[in-house]
C-alpha cells in the first residue's frame, strides 16, 4: 500500500517535472538521509555526513544490499568551556539499503567531498539484461 502511494507520488512529481528537488520527501528511516540515483548500468548513492571522517566510515556491499556504517566523533573539548548550544549529535550509525539489482562489489567506488559521501555502485554484469537476437528461421 505504502509502496503504491510512493510510486504514485513519484509519478506525479515526474509529471510536474520535479525530480531534483522534490518538495515532499519520503519518511526518513534512519541516519543518514540518502538520495539514490539509478540508471540501467548502476546506481549512485549520496548521503550528507558532515564531520564524519573517511576513516570512520565503513561501506560494504553484499549482492544487492549496501550497508553504510560509521561514527561521528565529538570534538575534543578543551578545559573550562561552556556550551551555549549543542544541536549537532554524535555517535554511531548503520543503514542498509536494498538496491533493485546485484552490484559488482569490485567496482564500487566511494568518495567524500565537503561532507557528502558519494558511492557509485555498478550493476553486476551477469545481472544486466541480455539482448536476445531473434533469428529468422
Amino acid at each position: 500500500m505504502w509502496r503504491e502511494m510512493e510510486r504514485l507520488r513519484r509519478e506525479m512529481n515526474q509529471v510536474f517535472g520535479e525530480t531534483a528537488a522534490p518538495s515532499e520527501l519520503p519518511v526518513l528511516r534512519g541516519y543518514p538521509a540518502m538520495n539514490i540515483w539509478v540508471n540501467e548500468n548502476g546506481a549512485v548513492v549520496t548521503t550528507e555526513l558532515p564531520g564524519v571522517l573517511a576513516e570512520d566510515l565503513d561501506i560494504s556491499v553484499v549482492d544487492d544490499t549496501l550497508t553504510i556504517s560509521g561514527s561521528r566523533k565529538p570534538e575534543e573539548g578543551a578545559e573550562g568551556i561552556t556550551y551555549h548550544r549543542r544541536e549537532r549529535g554524535c555517535g554511531t550509525f548503520t543503514r542498509s539499503f536494498q538496491l533493485p539489482f546485484k552490484v559488482d562489489p569490485q567496482k564500487v567506488e566511494a568518495t567524500t567531498n565537503n561532507g557528502i559521501l558519494n558511492i557509485t555502485l555498478p550493476r553486476a554484469e551477469e545481472d544486466k539484461p541480455k539482448k536476445i537476437a531473434v533469428r529468422v528461421g
Binding site: 531534483a20 520527501l25 519520503p26 540518502m34 538520495n35 540515483w37 540508471n39 549512485v44
Partner: peptide, 16 residues
C-alpha cells in the same frame, strides 16, 4: 548542487 550525470533520482530523503 551536483547531480550524477545520466542517472535519474529514484529515492530521495534529503533536499539540497
Amino acid at each position: 548542487p551536483s547531480y550524477p550525470e545520466g542517472y535519474s533520482l529514484a529515492w530521495a530523503e534529503y533536499r539540497i
